[in-house]
Each structure stands twice: as C-alpha cells, then as structure tokens.
Design a protein around this nucleic acid. Structure first.
Lengths: 340, 340
DNA sequence: GCAAAGTTTGTTAGCGCTCACAAATAGACG
DNA sequence: CGTCTATTTGTGAGCGCTAACAAACTTTGC
C-alpha cells in the first residue's frame, strides 16, 4: 500500500481512501467516538499505524477552538519547588492529552501580566500560575481572562482555582517540634512577603507561638536566598537571645547556618535551625537540616485534576490542599540549659 | 466603532472591513510585509489595537505548516543546570517569536524516543535536547527527524547541531588549580558515564593529569547526587592516600564533604574538594566550595542562535562552545606536608 | 502623453480538521 | 416481508489564516 496510490490527498483523507471509508469516519476513530463498527475501526487503525499517521494539532485546534495547551507562568527561575511542580504538572497534563507552554517572568524581563497575555495569545485552554507574588495576583484579577486559571498557593481564593501544600500545617509541625524540644524563644526569618507562601508562614508562625503561650517576638524579613540568610547570621555580634531559628525555606536556613558558623555559634548546640522544603541536598548540609517536606509531585497531580474538572465544566472542586510532613534531622536539639 | 457593525466577520476579516481594506492587507501588516503604504498600515494597526486583536496561532500554523514552537526534551527533572538552560532558551525563543513545549522523560516514565515522538506529533518546528544521555542520542540517530535538532552538549556532533559549556576547559582549570596548590594525588568521582558531560570530564581529567605528569589514579564512578557522594566518603575507613577530590558536580561534592566530615577528615585540612556547576548555594556550604561556573544563560542564548540559523536555513553554525570559569573558595588548600 | 515598469491592494483557493446534518444500512417487530 | 427505529457512515461547509496570482494604481522615461 503506497502513499502515492492516492495522489492529492493528505492527512485524514489519505487514511480514509486507503481504508475505503470517508474522512469523517477516520476523524471519528481518531476521537474515540462510539458507534463505529469494530471492523471499520480496525481497518482505519491499521492504515493509521501503517502510515504512521499523526493528525495535525493545528488543524484540530482551528476547527475545535481548543489548543489542548496549558499555559504556565513562573516567577522564580530555577528553584526546586516550582520546578518540581511544573514537572509534575507537565506529566499529569500529558496524561490527559494536554501540552505545557511556559512563560517565565523573572527579573522584570516580562511582567506577569505580559506573560499571561503572551500565553493567551498562544491560545492556551487554561492558565496555571506557579506560586505567584500576591501583587501579580492583584494584577491578574483585573484582567478578565476567558479561560480557567489555577493558582498554586496554599489558601483558597474567590477568583481563582487553587492548589497548594498546607503551609499552616508545615509551620505548626516545625514550631511544635521546637517547642517540644524546650525552645521558648524562636526567631522566624520570613521569605519576601509579596509571596503568598511566605505570608502564610509568617502568620501561621505567630499564631502558633501565641497558641503555645511562647513569648512573642517579631520576625525578620528576608528573601528566599541563601545569601540573605548568610548576611543576616554573619552580622550577629553576640550570642542571640533566641535559641532557635525558623527560616522560611531551606536555602535561607543553609545561609543562616553558614553565617552562624562564621560567628562561632554552634548549630544545634547554641541555636537550632529549621527550614522548609526538604531539598534533596538538605540532608547533606552540616548539620543535616530539620525541615518540612512538600510533596510537589502530588501537588502537580492534584492541581491538574482541579483544572481538568474546570475544563470539562463539571462541578468543579475549587481548591485542594496537600499535607506536608516534618523531617527531623540534626540541626535541632534542646536549648542549652544556660540560655533558658 | 462597534464589533457588531460587521456581523459574521471574525478575526482578520473583521479588522479588514473595519479598516476599509481587504483581509489580505491585514495579513500583510501582521506579518510585517513591506510594500504597504504607511497610511494604510497605520489604519490597520489602529483597528487592531482598538479591537485588541490577536491573530490565531492555530490558523497561522495550519496555513504555513510552521507552529513556531520548539520542543524541549529534558531527562533530569529539576536540576539547576538543565533548568537554567531551559529558562534561558525560553527567553531567547520568545524574543524570536517562538514558544517552548517541554517533555520530561525521567524515571523511565517516558523514554526519550517517546518524548521526541510526542513533541513531533505536536508539530514542533525544532527540537532541543537538554544534556541527554549518550544512549538517548544513539536512539535519536535512528529516528530520521524532519526538523532541526539541537543538542546541549560540549562536544560537536556529526548528526546534530550542538551547543555546550566547555567542559574540558572547566576540568583543566580545576586540575590546574589543585596542582598549583601542590596536590599530586587527586581522585575524580565521575558522574554517570551515560551522560556526555560526565564522560568528557573523566577524559579531560585523565588527560590533564597525564599532561601535568601527576601520578595516574583510576576514577570512581558515581551519579549526580549528593547521596552518592555521601555514601562514598562516609565509607572511608582510614585517611585516604589522595589529598584532593574532584567531584563531577557540586551536589556530589556536597555529599562528599558531608561524608568526610562524618569520618573526621577535615576539608580542606586533610583533603581538598572541588565541584562543578557553581550552584547558587555552593558558596554557603561548609566550607564554601571551590568549583567551576557554567554560564547557562549565555548557553541558552547561543543555542537558540544556532537553532535560528538552522530554521532560517542560513549557512548554519553547527556548534558553539561557552567558556567556563574557575571559582576558588575555601574547600581547597595546599596538602598537609605530612602526606606529601 | 503614453507604454513599460514598479508599487500597492484585492481575489480565490486551500491548509487538515470537526461540526451539523443527511443518507444508508442494520435490527426489531407485527 | 414491509415498516419503523437505531445504528453506522457520508456530505458539505467552514474554522482563521496565508500563498499565489490578478488587478488596480503609481511612477518613470522618451
């Protein structure tokens, strides 16, 4: 069976004439329609696989007004959490026949609004914002977007679909762990408050401290980088009056430990340190870091389930939350008796 | 000017009738054709911006047989290097009007071949393999792909376009640095040899050792993870007879330092350690890691230039190489006199 | 001032698919 | 065995754009 048997025809129509059916029957087979006689379906499938035929996504998109593409907006370039989430989403998307198109808006190269417009111009069927700044969300709310929008953040949202790891749980686990060890004076080094997760962690931290009846203490502002953690800790001039530091993520914690080391402050001897994320390398830091694990893979999968239900306009779940898990390692220990 | 003035018309034809020209003129404006009277062009542009009109990528792809999408295949899920490269490529791609579609083939979920087929079925105009295994490249060579394929690897290739960071230079810089400090016995912990970069580093290492007249010593096989580095170093039962370790990447080095610490072997007092990559956190390890920086951003940009020239079928550059840079920190020092 | 050449705009016909509907065929039943 | 209904297949139009050609309008040269 040679392709040149059927001059002029291409794509679906070629398959059709080779299988002795109409192009429409081929289309139906391709789209898994019912009401096709099994024998006919098989004949079509045979020709398809013999020809190694793949339907044109462009033509399909044009005819159906759906691109089967999901646009993803990321604000942080290469961090572990967002990247893991994207990978998980990508895989889940592929399983449901969707493809991912990403637009990174880092370092002011492209504003989040521009990223979204770019993706919308590509004709994506849905949008997914990975851990965006709260300011970006504000901008987004003005935009009246015609497709479903899912935001990866821990708190539910009136405007958007949401999926996120339970930040409050994670924070509570860490604070409780420190409290159980006997710490009463805990310093929180926050992430940049323009990030929703950072904000949630700050609020949850103070709430938990109050609930446990521990002394109140203002948090310190940071960003997500080890550099900042280092700058903070290495600037200490004397032994601090707190006995534990809760850094908003593992990178910060890493920098903090580096700085404390420079100052001759022992971890966990003098000060305990905890992070948030459980990076693959966190167990190999010195000392191995106590932290909270976030299951980004589960997050991606669940996120896409939410998106799918919205795309198929079922009764949509609007929010899912993934639990987090405490990982105790050697960066935490009971405080020195002296400092109590 | 109301959209409903022109019932029935959509897209380009709506714009056309509103601007009092034919749809073809609009198309020409959209595609930056010359030979349009400036006044006409302006009239069209005014209508476009008033309508906030965006041409349909699907229709354009169907008519031109070009999707303006580039497919990216990654084999490692979330590592710093590949991710940075992707981000850089994405940005460069957007600047030339292309969009990125990624397919991750990790943990055997999807073979590289399947990933490529998936992307090809999407109708991508070009393919970009990020730091693939050599075995994947072998599989790829069988495939007879109809679009340009660019592979991110340091060595030029007969079959594919290539772009990469100069691994030989980086390796030489590290070995020379150790040699200048006085080290004669250097152990190389290699990455998985199925990765081209790992292979190149191994070969360059041995070549440089020979060139410098240092004693020959077999390398150790590892993978890219800190876990493996840790497993290796923590299994040491006595002070090793080498005085320096060259780990194939920073993660390995991190694990090695962790393991050495467990064994009571001081870095760099007893053994110096170097890595490869210069992760953002590597300066905050204890001790801060001497390593080689790879400029992934430059890599991404250059890679896309190569791809662009291939897409526009100019006389194509088939290979570009980005220099790497030595970063000396505190994990290296002269060997103890005793061990000389 | 008019033909030849260049410049700008318009017309028609698809690109490869799906939708809505029409036609043909098969199955059910008195 | 013919009619009625359910199932399976086919037909024509069109999604929104561009390519190729044709037509109109300018310019130029002698």
């Amino acid at each position: 069976m040679d392709v040149s048997d059927q001059p002029g025809k291409t794509g679906i129509r070629l398959v059709a004439s080779l299988a002795g059916v109409s192009h429409m029957t081929v289309s139906r087979v391709l789209n898994g329609h019912t009401n096709i006689r099994p024998a006919t379906r098989q004949r079509v499938l045979d020709v398809i696989s013999e020809l190694n035929f793949t339907p044109s996504t462009a033509a399909r998109a044009l005819a159906t007004h759906r691109s089967r593409q999901i646009g993803v907006v990321v604000e942080s370039a290469v961090e572990y959490g967002p990247m893991s989430t994207i990978r998980a989403i990508e895989e889940a998307a592929r399983d449901m026949g969707y493809t991912l198109t990403t637009a990174t808006s880092h370092h002011g190269k492209l504003t989040p609004t521009q990223s979204v417009e770019h993706l919308l111009a590509q004709g994506v069927d849905a949008l997914c914002m990975i851990a965006p700044r709260t300011s970006s969300l504000v901008a987004l709310r003005q935009m009246s977007i015609a497709v479903p929008v899912l935001v990866i953040k821990s708190m539910a949202d009136r405007t958007f679909l949401t999926a996120g790891v339970d930040q409050v749980l994670g924070t509570n686990l860490l604070v409780d762990h420190l409290a159980e060890l006997g710490h009463r004076h805990i310093l929180h080094i926050a992430g940049p408050l323009d990030w929703s997760d950072a904000q949630v962690r700050v609020r949850a931290f103070h709430a938990r401290i109050r609930k446990l009846g521990l002394p109140k203490r203002p948090h310190v502002l940071g960003d997500w980088t080890a550099d900042t953690g280092y700058a903070f800790a290495s600037a200490l001039t004397e032994m601090p009056e707190y006995t534990a530091i809760f850094a908003a993520n593992d990178d910060l914690a890493l920098g903090v430990m580096h700085g404390l080391h420079d100052r001759g402050i022992a971890v966990p001897g003098d000060v305990s340190v905890v992070g948030f994320d459980d990076l693959p390398t966190s167990r190999h830091l010195w000392p191995p870091l106590t932290t909270v694990e976030q299951d980004f893979t589960a997050l991606g999968v669940k996120a896409l389930e939410v998106l799918r239900s919205a795309l198929e306009s079922e009764v949509a779940t609007r929010h899912v939350k993934i639990p987090s898990r405490l990982v105790v390692r050697e960066s935490t220990a009971p405080p020195r008796p002296a400092s109590l």
